[in-house]
Design a binder for these strands. Structure first.
Length: 128
RNA sequence: ACAGGUAGGAGAGGCAAUCGCGGGGGAAUUUUCCCACGAGGAAAGUCCGGACUCCACAGAGCAGCGUGCCGGAUAACGUCCGGUGAGAGUAAUCUUAAAGAAAGUGUCACAGAAAAGAAAACCGCUUGGUAAGAUUGCAAGAUUAAGAGAUUGCAAGAUUACAAGUAAGGAUGAAAAGGCAGGGUAAGAGCCUACCAGCGGUUGAGUAAUCAGCCGGCUUGAUAAACCUCACGCGGAGCAAAACUAAAUAGGAAAGGGUUGAGGUUGCUCGCUGACCUUUCGGGUAAGUUGCUAGACUUGGGCGGCAACGUUCAAGCAAGAUAAAUGAUUGCCAUUAACAGAAUCCGGCUUAUUGACUGCCUGUCAAC
RNA sequence: GUGCUCGUAGUCCAACGGAUAAGACGUAAGCCUCCGGAGCUUGAAAUGUGGGUUCGACUCCCGCCGAGCACA
């Protein structure tokens, strides 16, 4: 249910450039979302963290936070587009709950959420 | 007890549950389940040294670069260990690119007399008596009534100029051609002597750097992290190395050069190799597999060595990704805790770093 | 992975091993003006950082920090 395997994540310069050039962007203090509406992508996602944020440890942490937020909520998102998440400085010191909240807010603004579904938290706790 | 020095290990989360990630193994058989494993002391900087791969299994000379007290360790090193000299500290201890300045060249600002040929005389000191000469003494003596006394000669002579000697003293400077004391001298000077420093020789100790003793002559600025000399070392490129498989209109086209030798082999000259190379135009790929982790390996013990380390025995297998794997939530216990993420692999160096801990040593104070 | 270059006032730049670190623009104060501008005068302001060599270091050497470039 909450798997996120390699085949669902963008690989290579080619895909990143394509989304970056054609996509629409939404941003808040924590992260930036780039979206391209294309059914071929089938809900693939990419994670990025620039060198400005810090060293390898910090960039890894930012990417992990974003991936966890995406993984736990991906069933309530639309699947007919490709997404790239770019980390911002807030995530360096943020806790997971704050990161997830920021992510969901941004998804609402980008109209990525499926209306009929329960909230992500409800799904999460029902599996426990 | 306080202060300091030094060596060292460990390096902040642990346990349980749930959801996930990476490659591996197994079961199942087409997408699931199970199992164990999964970042560091610096993984970093890329500052050195190797292994490995390809180019002659790696060649010669010059150039270039690096290292630089001595001995040892090591695969190797610019690393480490032990020792010597020099410097710092009351001491424990620490620091040290520490060969050669008598092969040659360069530089040494300002100041100062002089800054590198044993050179140089500004002040000072001494001698000469060459020149000038205030003044003093003695003698002669124009003029004069006398007092006075021009002038001349001889002697002494402050002082000035000149000549010569002198580097002990002053002044300048970071540095002034050994230091200090005595003798010596016209005044001075290694001119002579003792001690110290340095130089050369020699004897002894030590593998050696070096140390100690004796003798000798009598003294040589600093800088080589300036050029340089000497000794030693270094062939080049790097896992995007290298090999294989596949795909792409696809072993493309044009011009130029080429077995009378293209290109490669860091720069040049040789030597070696031996068929492609360069530019332009047009068009693409940038995918997979191997390399890829069992090794100068890890842990523990014995033996040798002051030590670095070597050797031997036993046990063990411990990441292998490729937009690149360690995270999230809850509970309990600790506690609010650093720097930080493998990318072919090892040995070092350097830098970043929380709160503590352990061993040994030194100094001061107190008590016995 | 490999190789190379560069760090000097707020900015752009100079500077043989000899210092009080030069210049331009900007900036501060004053003069001038009814006010401002222009002009004139006078200032302030720097060697990325820690060591070493040297009598003396922006300069030479070593270690860090930062910036940039090139190749595969």
């Amino acid at each position: 249910m909450f798997n996120l395997s390699k085949s669902e994540i963008f690989r290579g310069k080619h895909d990143f450039n394509a989304v970056h050039n054609r996509g629409r962007s939404f941003a808040n203090h924590a992260l930036v979302i780039l979206i391209v509406k294309d059914e071929r992508y089938n809900g693939k996602v990419g994670f990025a963290a620039g060198k400005k944020l810090g060293g390898a440890v910090i960039r890894n942490r930012v990417k992990r936070l974003m991936r966890e937020a995406y993984r736990l909520n991906k069933n309530s998102l639309r699947r007919d587009c490709g997404i790239i998440l770019v980390g911002r400085k807030f995530l360096v010191t943020a806790k997971f709950k704050d990161a997830q909240k920021a992510f969901l807010d941004l998804c609402k603004r980008a109209k990525l959420l499926l209306k009929s579904n329960q909230t992500a938290d409800a799904i999460y706790f029902s599996t426990l």
